[in-house]
Every structure is written in structure tokens, then in C-alpha cells.
């Protein structure tokens, strides 16, 4: 009798009643997705603020060649970001930020390869690709440190601080620091998480556990950081 009741129970069971995964994803992965969604809200808020403040400022309407820095109008980004390390004085608009974008995309690719290797229980390959991902992240951070230093010191016009800058309205530098700074902080914590994963892989934690799902979860975070940069690149540097 109890068996009959049991059968009725399972057939009438709603998928949300527990005991199964309606979204076909593990708890950890799902929570990472929802965390990333909330993180996306924060980044969206920063970028939307940029959109609002920029559209409330006058735009430069002369020719690009005749452009000069002024607090009267919003600067053309390619005129602000045109320096590349070791090539002092050469105007290379957006080249350095293009290199940074490429570095971050590449480190995203090595992360996918690490996740793929994890699925195959290939410890050596996970180690290799995680190491490349960490190197990519650190290189990006180094580039950003250079970019910030250059932006703060400026090109002889007084540089930039949170309250004033040589490039345009005060808010321009403020938004630069907040948006790229918040993203850089994410890259930094991403590198720390990646290192933790690398360490646990080397010491065989995941091999003993029987799966490399942690690589996937941190991988999601790392791709998200790359995704945010794609948006920052477009809305801060290109548009």
C-alpha cells in the first residue's frame, strides 16, 4: 500500500518540489550565474551613469584633426588614449587598449581550454591552461597600471584627478577611474581565484574529488570579466 502511494507521489510531483535540478545546473554553478547577473547590474549602473553624464555634456563638433582638450565639451576618447609604452610621443590612438582587449580575450580562450581539459580529467592540461590564464590576467593588470599612470600624469597639461583633469569635464576622469577601476578590481580578484584553482589542481584536490567543476565556476567569473571589458571597450573607448 505504501508503494502505491509512493508511485502516485512521484508522478504528480512538480519539478520544483525538490530532489531534482530543474535548471539542469549544479547549485554552485547556478549561484555563480545569479551572482554574475547581480554583478552585471552594478557594471550596467556604472556604464549607464557614463551614458547619462556624457549625454548631458556638449559634444565637440569641430574636425578630429583640430581637436584640443577643453573642459567645455566631452573629449573624443581616441584623442585621450593614444599612448603606447616604449613609444613615447608617437600618436597611436587606441592601439594599447586594443592590445589589452586582445590579451583579455586570449586569457578567456585559455580558460575555456582549462575547463575542457577538466572535463577530460586531464590534470596536466588544466595546470597548463590555468597558468596561461593567470599570466594573461596579470599582463592585463600590468597594462592597466601603465594606462592609469599615464592618464594620471598626463601629457604636460596637468594630468587627472577625481576633481579635475586636462582632457575634458571633471566627470570624464571620475568615470574613467570608477569604471576601469571597478573592472580592474574584478580582474585582480579573478587572478586570485584562478591561482587558487591552479593551486588546488596541482595539489590534486579536484582529481581526488573526481571532477573539475570548480574550474568551470571560476571560469564563468573569468569570462564575465572579459565580457564586461568588451562593453567598457565599446562604450568608453570607441563611442
Amino acid at each position: 500500500m505504501s508503494t502505491t502511494a509512493h508511485t502516485i507521489d512521484t508522478t504528480d510531483k512538480n519539478i520544483w518540489d525538490g530532489g531534482q535540478s530543474p535548471l539542469k545546473a549544479s547549485y554552485g554553478k547556478l549561484m555563480m550565474w545569479f551572482f554574475l547577473l547581480s554583478d552585471a547590474f552594478t557594471f550596467s549602473a556604472l556604464l549607464i551613469t557614463y551614458g547619462l553624464i556624457r549625454s548631458a555634456h556638449p559634444t565637440y563638433d569641430g574636425t578630429v584633426e583640430a581637436f584640443t582638450f577643453s573642459n567645455e565639451y566631452w573629449p573624443i576618447p581616441e584623442k585621450v588614449f593614444e599612448a603606447v609604452p616604449f613609444l613615447h610621443g608617437v600618436s597611436l590612438p587606441l592601439v594599447f587598449v586594443g592590445i589589452m582587449t586582445f590579451i583579455l580575450i586570449m586569457s578567456s580562450v585559455t580558460m575555456v581550454l582549462a575547463v575542457e581539459a577538466g572535463h577530460r580529467m586531464d590534470k596536466k592540461a588544466v595546470e597548463k591552461w590555468m597558468l596561461w590564464t593567470i599570466i594573461g590576467g596579470l599582463t592585463f593588470l600590468g597594462c592597466q597600471a601603465w594606462e592609469w599612470t599615464h592618464f594620471i600624469h598626463g601629457t604636460g597639461g596637468g594630468g587627472a584627478s577625481l576633481s579635475w583633469n586636462e582632457y575634458g569635464p571633471a566627470d570624464f576622469a571620475g568615470l574613467f577611474f570608477f569604471i576601469t577601476g571597478f573592472h580592474g578590481t574584478h580582474v585582480f580578484s579573478g587572478v586570485l581565484l584562478n591561482f587558487l584553482i591552479y593551486y588546488n589542481t596541482v595539489t590534486g584536490v579536484y582529481e581526488r574529488r573526481g571532477h573539475y567543476e570548480m574550474v568551470e565556476k571560476v571560469g564563468l567569473y573569468w569570462h564575465f570579466v572579459d565580457l564586461v571589458w568588451v562593453f567598457v571597450f565599446t562604450f568608453f573607448y570607441l563611442v
Partner: peptide, 9 residues
Amino acid sequence: LIHEGSAIY
């Protein structure tokens, strides 16, 4: 909010 920004402008 971009629309709002141009209204402020």
C-alpha cells in the same frame, strides 16, 4: 537615462 541626459543638456 541617455534620453534623460540629453534632456538635462
